[in-house]
């Protein structure tokens, strides 16, 4: 299908979002809560674009806006730039010390703000919550509303569901969720909750610590076809096992 970005015709594919199209075509649109591996959420309101034809006119978040034939989009109208600027300034006021936020705010024309600052490390983009949900772990979620909204685990206690997969840390744009990898365990701290420490299971071949036991069991449960009878084997043991198999030797 064909549609218009800033007056130019582009070819878009079924199921694509406007943000994905813009990215693919090299049209710059800032974003924060968007992550290519996660379900779009539309919360940070940086990727705003304006629909001027072919759809319901007005400002939309491009990460949640599906492409449709004949859609006419402006990615940098005055309205869009103003709305983005306010949003960026509000994010900066929330997390004025965060380098990632400062960079995005500066890109949107807000080098500094005189609004009262809150010095929060988490900007509530929800990437971590979505990653955790998509991995079917559901260890973290949002609690409370408005300015009291928090990413947290139930009762702020060390999570009993977290598998220490660290997906949340990896997708966090501001580094708000901390984790430390020790030789024998992983420590993870979901914002203001109690830190969680998970022991690593031992490799059944070499006996060295490998992945957190809970993570192993979670994957085993979710993918029984692959892993039902398997035992944790660390990558280096697995490699030598496979080499042995390829060379026709029995492993053991």
């Amino acid at each position: 299908m064909e549609l218009y970005l800033d007056g130019k015709i582009y070819e878009a594919g079924e199921g694509q979002t406007v943000l994905e199209l813009a990215r693919a075509c090299g049209v710059p649109v800032p974003s924060l809560c968007y992550h290519e591996g996660l379900k779009p959420y539309g919360a940070c309101r940086l990727c705003l674009v304006e629909v001027i034809g072919g759809g319901r006119p007005g400002i939309h978040s491009s990460c949640t806006l599906p492409v449709s034939p004949g859609l006419e989009i402006l990615t940098a109208s005055q309205k869009v730039l103003n709305a983005r600027k306010i949003t960026a300034e509000l994010l900066l006021a929330r997390s004025p010390d965060n380098p990632a936020i400062r960079r995005i705010a500066a890109q949107c024309g807000v080098p500094h703000t005189d609004l009262p600052s809150h010095h929060e490390s988490c900007i509530l983009c929800g990437r971590c919550v979505r990653a955790c949900a998509q991995l079917e772990v559901h260890a973290i979620g949002f609690a409370r509303r408005g300015m009291d909204r928090r990413v947290t685990v139930p009762f702020s206690k060390a999570s009993r569901a977290c598998i220490a997969c660290r997906a949340c840390c990896n997708v966090c744009p501001t580094g708000a969720i901390e984790s430390v990898i020790f030789p024998d365990r992983i420590q993870i701290k979901h914002l203001e909750s109690e830190p969680l420490e998970l022991e690593k299971a031992l490799c059944t071949r070499c006996g060295k610590p490998y992945v957190p036991d809970r993570a192993w069991r979670h994957v085993q449960q979710k993918q029984p076809a692959f892993l039902k009878a398997a035992q944790p084997v660390c990558p280096s043991c697995r490699r030598s096992e496979q080499i042995s198999r390829l060379m026709g030797r029995s492993h053991g």
Binding site: A83, L90, A93, L115, R144, R145, M147
Partner: peptide, 18 residues
């Protein structure tokens, strides 16, 4: 409205507060 904002999106959550 500030206290009833769900807090999901930045402009409503942060903006109404400021």
């Amino acid at each position: 409205t500030r206290s009833e904002s769900c807090g999901k999106c930045t402009p409503c959550r942060e903006g109404l507060d400021r």
